[in-house]
Design a protein around this nucleic acid. Sequence first.
DNA 1: GCCGTTTTCGGCCCGACTGTTTTCAGTCG
Length: 576
Amino acid sequence: MKNAVISELFDQMADIMEILGEDVFRISTYRKVARIIGDLPTDVEMLLATGKLAEIPGIGKSSLAKIEEFVKTDTITAHQELLKKIPPTLLELLTIPGLGPKGTKAIYENLKVKSIAELKKALQDGLVEKLPGFGEKKAAALAKGIDFLQKSTGRIRLDQAMEAADIVTAFLKEQSGVEKVQPAGSLRRRAETIGDVDILVASKRGEQIIQAFTGAKFVQEVLASGPTKGSAIIQMETTPVHVDVRVVPSKSFGAAAQYFTGSKQHNVRLREIAVKAKMKLNEYGLFRGDKMVAGPVEEEIYKKLGLDYIDPLLREDRGEVEAAEAHKLPELIRLVDIKGDFHMHTSASDGKCSIEELAEAAKELGYKFICITDHSKSSAIANGLSAKQLAQQIKEIHKLNEKIKGITIFAGSEVDILADGSLDFDHKLLSELDFVIASIHSGMGSPRQKVTSRTLKAMDNPYVSCVAHPTGRLIGEREAMDIDIAAVIKQAAQTHTALEVNSNPYRLDLKDVHCKMAIEAGVKLAIGTDSHNIESLSLMSFGVATAGRGWATKDDVLNTLTPVKIKTWVKTKRPK
DNA sequence: GCCGTTTTCGGCCCGACTGTTTTCAGTCG
Ligand SMILES: Nc1nc2c(ncn2[C@H]2C[C@H](O)[C@@H](COP(=O)(O)OP(=O)(O)OP(=O)(O)O)O2)c(=O)[nH]1
Ligand SMILES: [Mg+2]
Ligand SMILES: [Mg+2]
Ligand SMILES: [Zn+2]
């Protein structure tokens, strides 16, 4: 799939044009195209062939021609031409926090600095601070910026962000004059990775609160500190986390929540609608002239713009604004709709606790079912079960179902999809299970055709009810397999197989846009926590959020069915 | 570069913080 490369090239063209000082609106068009292509869940080549690409707003003739050229030749002439105008390594400088295109241009033209390494040297030699527009402080900030960049671990996982947000939120709630505290930004939208943690505060005492925040003991470094907002790095156990705090008076809290939750592109869309309606939208409110039309309550902002309320999970400018205008937003799946969990491991394979312990914990969560899915024998590292052990476990589950009331324990397996697409267990044994999930744990680096056909073949098996973590990614650690997700989804629809939304924050697999594709194809989602202990059962909320980001309703998710209905659903695929 | 029942030309979201600036540009949210 060429989407990612095309997206990068458009961003790079925008970067170069910015350094060259070209028209800012033209540049933002390139950035928009980069974002659109980067967000596409489907192969750009397919969309191009069907003419769908040209229909996407924001992609005009010129961009379309560039994309077409890349699809055919693997290059974009305009990109090549731009690259001739600056040394490619100069683009590194744009990644330094605090240094933008203007500064980069000045440093390049005056000092002939072409890379971060050379900039470091120039800073040490005291050359940068002598440049017009620069000074001692700016030079020092740049040195710090480089340091930070080289130490930075990049975007963090949702669970890490949540932990940091909890600490800061608790601290802010203690401060006098604080009326409300609300995590915002990509964390509130439950994006799959988080660049920085954004927290909104309602208070009249902005300056004092920001000072308290930047002076807090968990703060390692202060990046900015003013009367309404502050930025700092806090050191968590596993990683440093960048936190932005914004304070507004409570009469603006709704508007500020809208602003600070984003996404940026979603905000721009709303502000455009406001302008068209002769109004102005900012973080202080929605205004017609001097009159505040909405502000204290977030829902009112949407209402007064003529839109249905848009759940934060959907605010990515992926069609939600149009849907809100047309009153066609989905009623999203919620955690309270979830009746059970499809994926968990016991101490029989690599889990930490017994079936009974998991069942009791699930009952506490109000669940009506759980599905025990230990690994199969090929996953030797995970202590996978042999056929004999699995048969034994099935018996044990039947006994436990007699003993434990109020919850149904499904006998299941996370059965390995072998190299040839066959499974670790025969039909006879699989037929004795209530719900089988199949997944790939080996040969994940194989070519696209190979991993795809393995997965497709597994779905042909009438006893496979679900494919678990279909792309196999581990966020921050391992790329997704090169798998044809469109083909997997099509096959899932045809074979009556569900696709998992793995809730582990390392996985979130399927991811949001793939969930959306699956739902549009009529495929059901099965959310599983992949728990190896009791605590992880609560990861369900991440899976539900990911499905919600994929526009999932109650009807799209198997976890909302009663155990009886799940059994019926499974039988549909099996031989009569 | 893109787009349009107010426009096919002329707009394009809007504001906070920093540093070097004497009135604001650059960068970022
Ligand atoms: N109107 C407007 N709002 C913006 C702009 N940039 C950022 N915001 C708002 C929306 C963002 O969600 C929010 C927080 O900014 P961040 O840079 O932290 O982005 P966000 O949290 O969405 O993603 P992240 O995971 O941090 O990269 O501020 C902008 O250019 N215009
Ligand atoms: Mg953020
Ligand atoms: Mg932020
Ligand atoms: Zn598992």
